[in-house]
Each structure stands twice: as structure tokens, then as C-alpha cells.
Design a binder for these strands. Structure first.
Lengths: 207, 207
DNA sequence: TTAACATTGTTATTAAAATAACAGTAATTT
DNA sequence: AAATTACTGTTATTTTAATAACAATGTTAA
């Protein structure tokens, strides 16, 4: 249907929506591109361009209808049926991720967590049941989980990813410091904290 | 001294170094560009280009001297004296970050953590003392901390950032879902998990 | 009624990043 | 000795993202 949007535009759409939901709760119904821009600390042109790419169009004197825009973004980002997410590794990071999610109503639902520590298995974290890693492939297949968050220590990341892919996972967010190799049909987002911190340190040093 | 390197190159240099340290511990002393590429699942050209940008040069038949390359990357990324880092907000995420760091010997040292929860104040997390948020500005100034990691809930992120900047922080990694606005002399790295997950979901849906 | 203004939507340009192309060269093979 | 091979280092090209420029238009002001 719609042409594939640029990566960065998709990221911003997600942020627009969150900002707009918040803005809406303040009782305002219309918003200008430069107001959206201020919320995210970017430029108005970029906002308008992104909105152009998704084919929505505002009105000249009032700007954009907040509710409409939220809906349109939803139609682009979400699927009707929703998508199921699993979190692998319930250390501090895994729990942090699940904590961020609980409460947010979104079309993404974390339906299962996995860990190999018997003390964690069969407990509930932020409303999500934790299963033993041995059951991972089975549950992912049976539940039709399409997205996985890897938050295990680096040394396990690779084999976990292998299993996930064999079980039919379509998208992975990798928080481990170990770079992953995935086939083309799997979308991978790396998320490496140590690298990011070292990068910041480099540019701090330079300035 | 060296010209400012591209953002992405700096990220990869950090990853090269980690991979090389690991490789070195396997007893190998030389490495080819395509071998580095395999470790990170990128192309050999990209590796060679990055290495060209930092001015290092390998030998034709042996490739790169692993130890030398590690040292050169260190000279570029690290400062002699090291840089001090503070973590603001000791929830699951804050603890995860400190956990990742403990053990890694690097020129970046987390020297202080801050939280407003009295139960956490004056405790030690992963070897790092936690102080009350009220003391944040003072300690940052006195200790000469130049980098901060924000892992507080979104609603506090903005004021925390303000305070950090007033206290003289030069680089910020923001894990909160609230976009920050910082003056030009402060380097900001946003790190928004919800957005990234929604992006992955979008591309999974598309594929 | 006309001019000035504030806003959107779109095209054009620039900047950043990745990829491709290829020249150069030491070692090895024929 | 010449050809081949397997690399590096660098320039050229392409792709992606961001920014700038500007036409179009309803609204307000003169």
C-alpha cells in the first residue's frame, strides 16, 4: 500500500504520536508544524516533510487536527491485530524494558519473558509471565510472537538469536554488546550502550 | 589534532576495539579487514575505510597488527586522564547500565549515581556510591564529571538535564522517552526504546 | 480592494553515510 | 620472469537523510 517510509521518518512518527497524545490530553485539538517541532526539538520543515510522506494534510490556518494525525500514524505503524513481543533475559535491563511497557497502551504487547534462572521462571514481571528458556522456541511458534528483545549477556546473544530466527521471529532488538548476524528477512535493531557511551565520550573530548 | 571523525565511524571504532580485544585473547596477533568485518557483520570495505580515516595502515600480507590497532583506537577515543560519568536514576535501567560497566576496564568510569529515593541513597551499586539527587550539581562540579546518563522517568528528564547542563556536563545519554533540548556545546545521544521497538514493528509488518 | 502575513506542501540542494570501483603491491605460482 | 592471487588504501558513485527554497493560499490589516 504505502511506499516504504525512511527509517528515520518512522522513528519520528512514533515520537510524534507520543507527543501528540500528551498534547491532546491538554485539551488542544489543533497543532502547527512548528509546535510539533518544538515538542521534539527538531525543525518544522522536517515535521512537515514527514507528514507529507505519510500523505496527511493539514489546513492552512489551523495546522493539523491532532486526533486525525494520531489516527493516521496509528494506521501506518500499527497492525490491526497487534503484534506480540517476547523479552529474552530478565536481568535489570529486561525488567526495565517490561516496566517501560506496562501501562502504555499500544498495539505491541509483551506476552512472554524467558530466562534460564529457575528462580525467575514461573514468576510474573510487570504483568508478563516468565518461562524457562527451553520453552522459548515452542512458545514463540505457538503464540505467533513476531518480535523479540534480546537482553541476555553478550555470550548468549548469538545462540539466542539463532533460536529466535528458527522459531520464526521477524524482528529483533538487540541490547547485548555482541553484534548479531541475521538473514535478510529479519529486521535487526542494534542497541549498544557501551558503544554509545564511548561515542559521547569521544565527542565530549573533541569539543 | 585529528579531524573530527564521522559519527558512525566512531561508533564502529568502539566496536572494533571490543572485538579486537576479544580476538587478541585468542592468541592471534594479526587480522585482515574481512575478518574484522565478519566479527561485526559488516563489509570489509567499510572496515578499511574507517581504518584509513584514523590514519592507521596495515601490511599487505598480514593485515593489521591487532595490538597496534587497539592502541590507535584508544588514542582516538580515550583521553589520557579518563572521563568521569554519572548515572542519574537508579531504577532497573540505571542498575543495568552500571552492571554493564563494572568489570570492563575502560577510560570511562562511573564515579557517582544519583537517586531521590532515600532507600537507595548512600548504598553502593556495582561499586558506585549512590547520592541524593539534591547533591547532584555540587558533586558533578567538584568531581569534574563530564558525562551523564539519564535513566529517570520521562517526567523528570527535562529538569534533570537542565541541572546537569548548569553543573557543566558536556555529554548526555538520554534513556528517557522524553526528547531533550540541549545547547550546542553539549553532545546529546538519545536512546529511546519504545520508539525503536515501534520502528522494528513497522518494518516487520512491511516485510 | 489590495497588500502583508503566516502557514502548508513540495521541489531543489546539501550533507552524511555506505557502497562500489579500482590502482598499487608483496607473495606465490607457473 | 611473467602471470596470478590476495590483500590494502583511496577515489568515485550512490543512497539516505536533512535542510533550504519557494509557490500556493486563506486570513487579516490597511
Amino acid at each position: 500500500m504505502t511506499r516504504r517510509l525512511p527509517d528515520k521518518t518512522v522513528e519520528r512518527l512514533s515520537q510524534y504520536r507520543r507527543a501528540l497524545l500528551n498534547y491532546l490530553s491538554g485539551g488542544k485539538h489543533h497543532i502547527f508544524s512548528h509546535e510539533i517541532a518544538n515538542l521534539l526539538h527538531i525543525t518544522a520543515v522536517q515535521v512537515r516533510r514527514d507528514i507529507m510522506l505519510i500523505g496527511y494534510t493539514g489546513t492552512l490556518r489551523q495546522g493539523y487536527d491532532v486526533k486525525e494525525l494520531i489516527d493516521i500514524i496509528g494506521k501506518i505503524i500499527d497492525t490491526k491485530e497487534g503484534q506480540k513481543v517476547a523479552v529474552i533475559g530478565i536481568g535489570n535491563l529486561g525488567r526495565a524494558i517490561m516496566g517501560y511497557f506496562s501501562g502504555k497502551r499500544t498495539r505491541l504487547t509483551i506476552v512472554a519473558a524467558f530466562d534460564s534462572n529457575p528462580e525467575k521462571v514461573d514468576k510474573i514481571y510487570a504483568g508478563v509471565p516468565c518461562y524457562h528458556s527451553e520453552k522459548m522456541m515452542e512458545i514463540i511458534r505457538n503464540e505467533g510472537i513476531s518480535i523479540a528483545v534480546i537482553s541476555v549477556p553478550g555470550e548468549y546473544a548469538e545462540t539466542v538469536a539463532q533460536d529466535l530466527i528458527m522459531a520464526g521471529i521477524k524482528g529483533i532488538v538487540n541490547f547485548s554488546p555482541k553484534p548479531l548476524n541475521v538473514p535478510q528477512h529479519v529486521y535487526l535493531q542494534e542497541f549498544d550502550m557501551l558503544t554509545m557511551l564511548e561515542k559521547v565520550a569521544y565527542f565530549v573530548k573533541k569539543s
